[in-house]
Nucleic acid binder design. Sequence first.
DNA 1: GCCAACGTTGGC
DNA 2: GCCAACGTTGGC
Length: 139
Amino acid sequence: MAYWLVKSEPDAFSWDEQVANGVEPWTGVRNHQAKKNLTAMKAGDRAFFYHSNVQRAIVGVVEVVREGYPDPTAETDKWVCVDVKAIAPMPTPVTLAQIKAEPTLEDLALVRQSRLSVCPVSAEHWQILCDMGEWQEPA
DNA sequence: GCCAACGTTGGC
DNA sequence: GCCAACGTTGGC
């Protein structure tokens, strides 16, 4: 299983909406590197749900339930989206400031490439971030 | 609101 | 194919 981090501006699409909707298509990616990451996602992969801009924190965890397919919101079929399902919120949201203050996370794609909206997360970094957020696997 | 990073576009 | 101009994203 691979791990990821997906970003959304809460003004456009928030974690609360993700929870309310359950399964939601992750659309609107118009960047080739982000698309590459979306394409590499497998069903069952986990991703952190990150609020950019106003909150700047990891606020929840989602699971990939449908692998890459053409993004219906794109004018051409060259862009890709996946479906993700809300699993649970982070008990303690992990802020960007905390992430930047943690030396073991300095290579995180989120930090190194702040504009990339879909980033891979290594298993080691995933574990560190789960610890920081006091993540508990739902029963 | 400003600015840095980065992607895209278009002239040459 | 290079590079300047411009637009967008996202942190501060």
